[in-house]
């Protein structure tokens, strides 16, 4: 059995009551993503725990984990840098920005830097097309990102530690 922070436990308790009677399975996807934020990745222990709470088999949770691209079986960095290269971003330098991020962080797609602070992912459209190119670091959106602006962002986060 796993327990989470009091805030998350409270969230989960509320979550499980928000679906119709006997439909706790509905909480699987949100529970996984919120738990991942706290645990760091989707571990097999977490799968079992979510299965228990949502009254499904671990296999049913495992199937879900493999399906959603934001769920990771391996821990990402403390700062997960997601660079969009989809069409709107591509047209205004998204690909160059992603390549710059690779160089800057010294890692590639879905890789984690040695210090565990940063990870990188080339992502699909995340809904910032009109303010492209866009980057999302953890859950924070950054619009009209240039390589210079990205450097500043990353350096700022490094310093903040």
């Amino acid at each position: 059995m796993m327990t989470f922070s009091p805030q998350l436990e409270q969230k989960f308790a509320k979550m499980l009551t928000s679906y119709p009677e006997g439909k706790k399975r509905s909480a699987v996807v949100p529970m996984l993503i919120y738990a991942q934020d706290e645990v760091g990745s989707i571990t097999s222990e977490l799968i079992d725990e979510v299965a228990r709470r949502c009254e499904v088999t671990p296999l049913q949770v495992d199937e879900v984990v493999g399906y959603y691209s934001m769920l990771h079986r391996n821990p990402m960095g403390k700062y997960h840098v997601q660079v969009c290269t989809n069409i709107s971003c591509l047209l205004v330098g998204g690909m160059e920005l992603y390549e710059h991020a690779c160089k800057k962080l010294g890692i590639g797609h879905k890789q984690v830097a040695a210090d565990g602070q940063f990870s990188l992912e080339e992502v699909e459209c995340m809904g910032a097309c009109s303010w492209a190119p866009a980057v999302e670091i953890n859950y924070d959106f950054h619009h009209h990102v240039t390589p210079e602006k990205l450097d500043q962002l990353i350096d700022g986060l490094r310093k903040a530690q």
Binding site: S26, Y34, S69
Partner: peptide, 29 residues
């Protein structure tokens, strides 16, 4: 009337309304 938010987890396909419903029910979209 009760209104609840429900988080997805990264799947374009869940924009398709029936896939969204499967996802809402805790399944693969």
């Amino acid at each position: 009337f009760d209104l609840y938010t429900h988080s997805g987890a990264g799947a374009y396909e869940c924009g398709e309304e029936t896939a969204l419903l499967d996802s809402l029910e805790g399944k693969r979209g």
